[in-house]
Nucleic acid binder design. Sequence first.
DNA 1: CTCCTTATTGATAATGATTTTCATTATCAA
DNA 2: TTGATAATGAAAATCATTATCAATAAGGAG
Lengths: 147, 147
Amino acid sequence: MNDPAITQTWLEAMAVHGARQTAARRAICEVLASAARAMEPLELFTESRKRCAGLGLVTVYRTLEILEELGLVARVHQPGGCNRYIRAAEGHQHLMICSACGKAEYFEGDDLSRLFQQVAGRSDFLVQDHWLQLFGLCRACQSASTS
Amino acid sequence: MNDPAITQTWLEAMAVHGARQTAARRAICEVLASAARAMEPLELFTESRKRCAGLGLVTVYRTLEILEELGLVARVHQPGGCNRYIRAAEGHQHLMICSACGKAEYFEGDDLSRLFQQVAGRSDFLVQDHWLQLFGLCRACQSASTS
DNA sequence: CTCCTTATTGATAATGATTTTCATTATCAA
DNA sequence: TTGATAATGAAAATCATTATCAATAAGGAG
């Protein structure tokens, strides 16, 4: 699914949820859907404002709240802070984040769920959910550090 | 290693680091070392104050900063917030958190590192670090929800 | 054991991110 | 086209965290 399609999907999902379709929301969704990195509210505000003059920061917060509530967008936790948002995973995927440029990419982690149950089975916990994130260097940043 | 021993280890590590041994720090370490759950600064403050009258919240923040810097304590990220701290893992361990009571427990995850490299190998990322946390129900809370 | 340097302390003020409030504006169903 | 009402932006309020600073206490030197 490409970026414009994602934006469309998000706006439709919001509509189903009873939320109106506005210029502000469209701008915010477009920016976030096409972002290669997780973005924080202020960045998202600055970028989205280029597409929707007069946009307010508060609207960014409110839109993120809805998108997160609908499971379309996810908050990303990093050593440097936990206020960045990115397109949510499709199915059993996990994030891999470049610690140099911030680029984020999902990878399939379907086979991991089973393992977690098993590993945790050694204790008395009943596992219901898991958070997994990998940090490293993307291809571009590997090359950059070599040269 | 039991709780008083952990406290002692922490205070000694802080001493090596050049930090003085004070009543405030001892109280904070004692509380955090014996905690079964990750605690937020304000909670830690309230509890520690019972052992060290007049303790200030600011000192809790400062002590946490040192303990984290020395790798003795780790920040815990949860859906409800990212401002809780807990005893750091020993070696390749990961956290398992009870979503009902908050109880946290470490489990061995040594064999997982290899898997992450492998899984990520499908992409162009060079994995350097990983964050893994499991959420579920501890034994006590499983029983509670059954009865 | 006492003194003295200096790290540590708590109270207060400042900061920065996020939320709330509210009057105005825009969406969209009828 | 119209009207009920959701959505908006500006400003104020809130909350956690950080910086400031004068008073205090830790702990090495003597």
